[in-house]
């Protein structure tokens, strides 16, 4: 489609504004993480790496970081197993209520975190009577991490012809052999992409976490939130935020690359935007 000069300019400007809205605030954080000033002073009087040294030495921040990584890895592991099984069931078998199951698996991503949070909190503390701990956060995070694994894997399974699995069974492979030798290798990149996105989602989650975190435990987002209002800590918070940005970008970028390469290879043409990769 050819656009007039005016429309082209308009598109360029609006794209520019959109990107600016998203990235200028991030840039501000990055700049102040290196500023010598303790306040948001403009222009920054000078630049330093001191805040990063302080951030690394800060036990609170370090413990929170380790705790977040642990949570993210465990929630991702749970999501990988359950999300993959759910997508196999929905993509490869006909059963009563299949569409409903598919919808219910995706729903948690759309539910407001605050609702999920209070629901899980009540269930854990009131109904089940268990103390909030790492276990409760992992379960809570898994509810929405499953969605991204599920979406990625099911998109791949739908592209992957079911006759490969039939051919495998026909040649004598048991269902487990078929899964290991045929299904898994052909969905591997979707699994990795789903896992990376799930980890990224879990790593920066704060709302549901607030309702399910154990007493005395802190994830990195919670640590940031509590220290953000303390003027003394502000520069360290900025430095930690920069680290979080880096840690979040890498998995999302890798996931994007993986799914894009696959769809390019699969269709033998121009890269196609893969709906599955979009982190909600």
């Amino acid at each position: 489609m050819r656009l007039s000069r005016g429309s082209q300019a308009l598109l360029r400007i609006s794209t520019g504004i959109t990107l600016a809205f998203i990235y200028v605030p991030l840039l501000v954080i990055v700049v102040y993480a290196f500023s010598v000033s303790r306040t948001f002073e403009w222009p920054p009087p000078g630049f330093t790496f001191d805040w990063f040294d302080l951030a690394f030495d800060n036990t609170g921040a370090r413990d929170a970081f380790v705790y977040s990584v642990k949570t993210g890895l465990l929630a991702t592991a749970v999501a990988l197993v359950l999300g993959t099984l759910a997508s196999l069931a929905v993509a490869r078998h006909r059963f009563f209520g299949r569409e409903t199951v598919s919808f219910l698996v995706i729903l948690p991503i759309a539910l407001p975190g605050i609702v999920t949070g209070i629901a899980l909190n009540s269930t854990f503390t009131q109904v089940l009577g268990i103390d909030l701990s790492l276990f409760t956060i992992v379960v809570a995070h898994a509810t929405f991490c499953i969605v991204v694994v599920y979406n990625n894997v099911i998109a791949r399974l739908r592209r992957l012809s079911g006759s490969f699995e039939e051919a495998s069974a026909d040649l004598g492979a048991t269902p487990w052999q078929t899964f290991r030798l045929i299904t898994l290798p052909n969905t591997r990149t979707a699994l990795v992409a789903g896992a990376l996105l799930a980890f990224a989602l879990s790593f920066d989650e704060i709302i549901v976490t607030t309702f399910t975190v154990g007493a005395g435990d802190q994830t990195l987002p919670i640590w940031i939130f509590t220290n953000f209002s303390r003027p003394n800590q502000l520069p360290i918070v900025n430095a930690v935020a920069v680290i979080v940005i880096l840690i979040s970008i890498i998995p999302v970028y890798l996931a994007y690359r993986l799914t894009r390469e696959e769809s390019t290879a699969a269709r033998g043409g121009a890269p196609v935007a893969s709906g599955a990769v979009t982190a909600p």
Binding site: S161, S163, F164, A167, D170, I182, P185, N186
Partner: peptide, 13 residues
């Protein structure tokens, strides 16, 4: 029994 499928179903990987 073994089957030769219409779309061959050769394992692509």
């Amino acid at each position: 029994v073994n089957t030769v499928f219409q779309d061959y179903a050769l394992f692509p990987h």
